[in-house]
């Protein structure tokens, strides 16, 4: 019995996005419940120089704790971790964060694939990954891993994405658990808490 309950529970949520994803994030954050009991990791492509801009923006829209992911920091429930610009963010078996300055993947650092893949191995069927708007194919390989490990794949409806290419590629190549319009994302995330 306990196992059945466990398998439907979310232990971590990772949201990946590129061009056009900020609008969705800014819509999601103000309505997130303040008692979220899983960590949220955000991986958004951006220029290396815009250091804390994204963190500050998201911080201003929620009462949840928001911070840039620091290396060796442990994922905490109810906290939002922003993958820092110009590093890949990986999740370790002990649920701590590793940063990595290796080659760009899909011309991107942070790469969404890298975080999705490493989180998939750690959280397996208790992971939920959401892929938002973007104009390259980063995230698709990562979502395949999430599927392989039994996690949930959520893709933004390309028709509602400012840049449809990234979610489109995902829909073509990965079997999603659900496809959602941008403005339905917040409800979906809040319901993961139940």
């Amino acid at each position: 019995m306990a196992e059945t309950v466990g398998s439907t529970t979310c232990s971590a949520l990772v949201i990946g996005g590129s061009a056009g994803s900020l609008d969705v994030l800014l819509e999601i954050f103000p309505v997130l419940r303040n008692d979220i009991h899983f960590p949220i990791i955000i991986v958004v492509h951006r220029k290396a120089s815009n250091e804390s801009l994204l963190t500050d923006l998201l911080k201003s829209r929620t009462t949840l704790a928001v911070g840039e992911a620091e290396e060796k920091e442990f994922l905490m429930p109810g906290k939002v971790f922003i993958a820092p610009a110009d590093y890949h963010t990986l999740i370790e078996e002990d649920r701590s964060i590793s940063l990595d300055y290796s080659e760009k993947i899909n011309y991107s650092r942070p790469s969404i694939d890298v975080t999705f893949q490493s989180a998939a191995e750690v959280f397996k069927e208790k992971l939920v990954c959401i892929l938002l708007s973007g104009s390259n194919a980063d995230g698709v390989e990562g979502l395949k891993s999430v599927n392989n490990y039994g996690g949930k794949v959520v893709i933004q409806n390309p028709n509602t994405a400012i840049m449809p290419y990234m979610p489109q590629q995902a829909v073509i190549n990965v079997k999603p658990h659900v496809i959602l319009d941008g403005h339905d994302m917040a409800d979906y995330i809040n319901n993961l808490n139940d």
């Binding site: 990986l90 999740i91 370790e92 078996e93 590793s98 990595d100 290796s102 890298v114 893949q117 490493s118």
Partner: peptide, 9 residues
């Protein structure tokens, strides 16, 4: 070494 990184390499 950090496990996740080295495994990925």
């Amino acid at each position: 070494y950090s496990h996740a990184s080295i495994k990925r390499r």
